[in-house]
Each structure stands twice: as C-alpha cells, then as structure tokens.
C-alpha cells in the first residue's frame, strides 16, 4: 500500500473513519506497550544472562529471583532529580534524548509481527527503517554538543562517526535482500522467502547477514563496539551530563534499537513469522502454531546473541572499529550486491 493510500483509505470510508482510526490507535498502543515491557525486561535478562555466564547470580533481591528489578529501576529513575548543566543549550539538551526514542518507536510501525499484523504496510518499508535509523545520529550529536562539556562533546564526535559509518554497511547489506525479494515491503520480503525450500535468506545471503549483524551491533552501540559508552574505561560518552528520566530515555532507546535490529534481521534473513517450507512440508502440524511464536522466538535468539557476545568478546579499539567498518564490511557488502545481482540476472 502507498503511504497516501493509507490516508486515502481513511478518508474514503467516511462511515467507518472513526472505527479505522480507533483500530490503528489500538494497534499502536498494543505494539508500543509490548515493546516497552520488552525493553524493561531486556535489561533484567541482560543482567541475569551475563551474571550466569560469569558465574554470578545477577539481580536476586527484588521479588523472587529479582523478577521485579526493572520496575524498581524504573521507579527510581523516574523520581531522580533531573539536572541540566549550567551553560547547556537548554532546548537542544532537552530534545536530544527524545529523538532516538522517537526514531526507534516509529520504526516499529512497519515491522510485520505475524501474518496480516502490521501497523502500516507501506511499500518502502525497508527504506523507511533505514531513514529512521539514520536519525539516531542526531540524538548523539545534539546531546554531545548541547551539554557544554568537553567529555560529552568528544564522546558525541566519536560515536556519531561510528554510527554514520556503520549505517552505510547496514544499508548495503540489505540491498542483497532487496534484490532477491524484488521489493522493499517487509511483508513481501517475508513472502518471497517462502518461495525457496529453505524459507530464509540467511542461506543464500549469509555474507549480507554477517555484515548486517556486525553493523547492527555497532549501530546500537553494543559490545564489542560499545566505545560510546565503554563503562569499564570511561565516564560514558555523549550522555555524561544526563540524569534521571532523560538518561533513562537514552538507555531505553538503546534496547529498543536492539529489538528493532533483531526484528529486521528476523524479517529479512530468518523468514519472519514463517517456518522453512522444508520443515512445514515434513511436519504439517507445525503450520498450526501461530506465526507470532516463531517471530518472537527468533527475535529472542538475536537479543540473546547480543548478551552472549557482550559477555564473550573484548572491546574494539577505535581505529580497529573504523578499519573494520570501512575496509571489511562495506567492501564485503558491495561484493555481495554484485554477486547477488549477477545470480539474479542469470536465473
């Protein structure tokens, strides 16, 4: 559907206009509510998973096995004092943490969670997600500059250079998927994968998947590319001067970014809510399982991968990070595009 088709559709059905708007609002509320809950519990599971990998218990005090820890953290952050540094550019300082959250939440609008459930099925879905993720750099640059602090300024420069470089790799790695599916709509991409026996582009596009995964780690500022924060070496980066709820917004945006990057990986490379036809043909009973189960399971695997790699790999040095992005990932992604295009042209 065209973006304006959505708009026309709303206006065209005069009688059910209010009902259509109501349905869309309910859908948005459900998606945002569930995502926020996932963000809260992603922090809890990160501490638990890494704790057990390091032979610790992780949070144990609040509720049984610390299950209420994210709620306690949320309440604490909410009631903390909101400090705005002296000499900060106040409007820019206050807007900066909202931008990454806004960009992350609006990306959710085009992700198909299961058959027929997507807030807006637009035919440039993938480009829309790239456009929204390119806005993330503004939150970093604006917060780094407006804090009027040398530490956050340097942190902002560092991490915006990182985010901008890896954005190119993400965009190029998805081009292979676009060529194979012949569409930019996420719904069509999932359906196109069902045409193959393997049912996921992970197999023909394994180079693109590797590039996407590495670039997604860098794009969301996660280990081993967490130089913007580097909590064990530095006093964090661009958000040094933020406290209370505004800090929590940056923190939440990072986890939302992880969830969205995982969802894109699942939709573009793992067949979204579907299972490979080779499995469903062998065991037809699998078709009875609702698609959301597969989607959520695949997303959880990717989020676990984030924790796993954080607990395993040491942090990259800044020059290594830049060399990896520009000299390895981008040429790999370009080569993948050329090969994919030739194969598509031949067949």
């Amino acid at each position: 559907m065209n973006i304006f088709g959505l708009f026309d559709g709303l206006i065209g059905m005069q009688g059910s206009l209010a009902l259509n708007i109501l349905i869309i609002i309910v859908k948005i509320a459900v998606v945002v509510g569930i995502t926020m809950l996932h963000v809260a519990y992603a922090t809890y599971f990160e501490r638990k998973v890494i704790g057990h990998m390091q032979v610790r218990l992780g949070p144990m005090r609040v509720g049984p096995h610390g299950i209420l820890q994210p709620i306690a953290d949320g309440i604490k952050l909410f009631f903390k004092e909101d400090i705005v540094p002296d000499g900060a550019d106040k409007p820019v300082f206050k807007i900066a943490p909202i931008i990454p959250v806004f960009a992350a939440l609006s990306s959710l609008a085009v992700i198909p969670f299961f058959e027929g459930f997507v807030i807006a099925d637009i035919n440039i879905g993938l480009l829309y997600i790239l456009a929204m993720s390119s806005l993330g750099a503004y939150g970093i640059v604006m917060s780094g500059w407006s804090s009027n602090s040398k530490y956050s300024f340097l942190g902002g420069l560092r991490s915006s250079a990182q985010v901008i470089s890896y954005e190119i790799a993400i965009g190029l790695s998805l081009v292979g998927v676009m060529i194979m599916a012949g569409s930019l709509s996420l719904n069509d991409i999932v359906k196109a994968q069902q045409q193959h026996w393997h049912g996921m582009y992970l197999i023909p596009q394994f180079i693109a998947y590797f590039v996407f995964l590495v670039a997604a780690f860098a794009e969301t500022n996660r280990a081993p590319f967490d130089l913007p924060e580097a909590e064990s070496e530095l006093v964090a980066g661009y958000f040094v001067e933020y406290s209370g709820m505004r800090f929590a917004l940056f923190y939440a945006a990072e986890y939302m970014g992880m969830i969205i990057m995982s969802s894109i990986a699942v939709v573009c490379f793992w067949g979204g809510w579907t299972m490979p036809p080779v499995i469903t043909n062998a065991v037809p009973a699998i078709k009875m399982v609702p698609g959301i189960v597969w989607f959520v399971g695949k997303v959880y695997f990717h989020i676990f991968l984030y924790y796993w790699i954080r607990a395993t790999l040491p942090r990259y040095r800044y020059d290594q990070l830049m060399a990896l992005g520009w000299k390895v990932l981008i040429p790999l992604a370009l080569a993948n595009i050329v090969v994919t295009a030739i194969v598509k042209f031949m067949s």
Partner: peptide, 13 residues
C-alpha cells in the same frame, strides 16, 4: 515515496 525516503536518508541522515 521513494524520493521522500531518500530525502530523509541522504539529506537529513
């Protein structure tokens, strides 16, 4: 819509 997305990716982003 393609131009709109590219406008945001290239010019804004």
């Amino acid at each position: 819509e393609f131009l709109a997305a590219v406008q945001v990716i290239l010019y804004a982003g």
